[in-house]
C-alpha cells in the first residue's frame, strides 16, 4: 500500500507538526483556565502526547484513513483537520464534539476500549471493500483492561486487518494490573498476532519511525520525562528549521487563534432546548 514516507519528513512538514503540537498545548492551557474560571467542562490532559500523535497523523492520509480517537487525542485531531474553533464550539456547548464524518475522524467519549472493537469493524469494512485505507485507534493504557480491547484486537489479528492500535500510557497512572505483570500492552497485542512495539512517545523521531514502518523490537532506555515540544523544538533548531524569533511567532499565532476561537464560540448561537429532541432517529422512513 502506498504510504507517505515519514521517517525523515522535510523541514516544512516538521514545522507544521510542531505548530500543531504547540496549538494542542496552548488549547489545553486555555481549557484549564476556562474550567476554573467559567465552570466549563473539565479539561483533559494532553501534555506529553503531542509528539506521538502528530507523528501518527503524519503517517495517515486525512480523508482517506480512519482515526478513532479518545479524549487524550487533541493533537491528533488537530493534525487530522479539526480546528481550534471546532474545539471551542464544543467546549462552549454550541456544537457536537463527535461530528466529524467528513474527515473520517470518529471521536469517542470512551476512556476504555469499546471503540477498539468498533475500529476493528471499520478496518474489516475496509478489507471487505478492498479499499486502500488504514484505521488508527487510540486508547489510554486503561483501555487494555477492558474486554472490548482484547475482543477488537483478537478480531483484527484473526483477519489481518489494516488496523493500528495506539496505547498511550499516562505517566504516573495507577497501572493496577500492569505493575504486577511483566507483560506490556505490546506483548499482549503480539499474543493476538499483531506486530507491536513499545516506544518513547515523547520522541517524535521514534514515534515517526514506528508509524512509518514498524521497526524490530529493541529495549528502550528508561528515560526521565522530557517535554516532547521541547525535544521537537531542539530537533528543528538543530536542523536550522526554527529560530527563536520564529518559535515566538508560532506561540503567538497559537494564542491569537485560540483567543479568536473562544470569541467566536462564545458568540455562536446556542441551540434551543427543544432541539435536544433532534437526531434521535433518522427522518428517513422505510417500508
Amino acid at each position: 500500500m502506498a504510504r507517505a514516507p515519514v521517517i525523515n519528513p522535510p523541514a516544512s512538514t516538521l514545522l507544521a507538526l510542531y505548530r500543531t503540537m504547540v496549538m494542542a498545548r496552548a488549547i489545553e492551557r486555555r481549557l484549564w483556565v476556562l474550567e476554573r474560571l467559567e465552570r466549563m467542562a473539565p479539561s483533559i490532559r494532553v501534555t506529553g502526547f503531542e509528539a506521538l500523535q502528530v507523528a501518527a497523523a503524519a503517517a495517515l492520509r486525512p480523508g482517506r484513513d480512519w482515526v478513532v480517537s479518545g479524549p487524550l487525542d487533541l493533537a491528533l485531531r488537530l493534525a487530522m483537520g479539526m480546528s481550534p474553533l471546532d474545539v471551542m464550539l464544543a467546549v462552549f456547548e454550541k456544537a457536537s464534539p463527535y461530528a466529524s464524518s467528513a474527515s473520517r475522524l470518529v471521536n469517542t467519549p470512551a476512556m476504555g476500549g469499546r471503540h477498539v472493537a468498533q475500529a476493528a469493524g471499520i478496518a474489516y469494512a475496509t478489507q471487505v471493500s478492498g479499499r486502500d485505507e488504514v484505521t488508527l485507534v487510540c486508547t489510554d493504557e486503561r483501555g487494555i483492561y477492558t474486554g472490548d480491547w482484547h475482543e477488537g484486537l483478537n478480531f483484527a489479528g484473526a483477519h489481518g486487518l489494516p488496523l493500528i492500535c495506539l496505547v498511550e500510557e499516562i505517566a504516573g497512572g495507577s497501572r493496577p494490573i500492569a505493575r504486577h505483570l511483566e507483560a506490556s500492552p505490546a506483548t499482549r497485542a503480539e499474543g493476538y498476532g499483531l506486530a507491536a512495539e513499545t516506544l518513547d512517545g515523547g520522541d517524535f523521531g521514534a514515534a515517526s519511525a514506528a508509524f512509518g514502518g514498524l521497526r524490530p523490537p529493541e529495549e528502550l532506555e528508561a528515560q526521565a520525562w522530557q517535554d516532547p515540544i521541547d525535544r521537537m523544538r531542539r530537533r528543528l533548531a538543530a536542523a536550522g528549521g526554527l529560530s527563536d524569533d520564529a518559535d515566538d511567532e508560532i506561540q503567538r499565532e497559537s494564542a491569537r487563534a485560540i483567543a479568536a476561537a473562544v470569541v467566536e464560540a462564545r458568540q455562536a448561537p446556542s441551540p434551543e432546548g427543544a432541539q435536544a429532541l433532534d437526531n434521535v432517529f433518522s427522518s428517513d422512513l422505510v417500508g
Binding site: 470518529v106 472493537a117 471499520i122 478496518a123 474489516y124 483478537n154 478480531f155
Partner: peptide, 28 residues
Amino acid sequence: EARVLDTPLAESGIVGVAIGAALNGLIP
C-alpha cells in the same frame, strides 16, 4: 466467508465490530 462471518463467542465484540463496519459503509 467475507459476507457470512463466523465470529468469536464474544457478544460485545460482535456488536462493536458491527458498529464499526456500519460506520464504514457496510450494513451488518
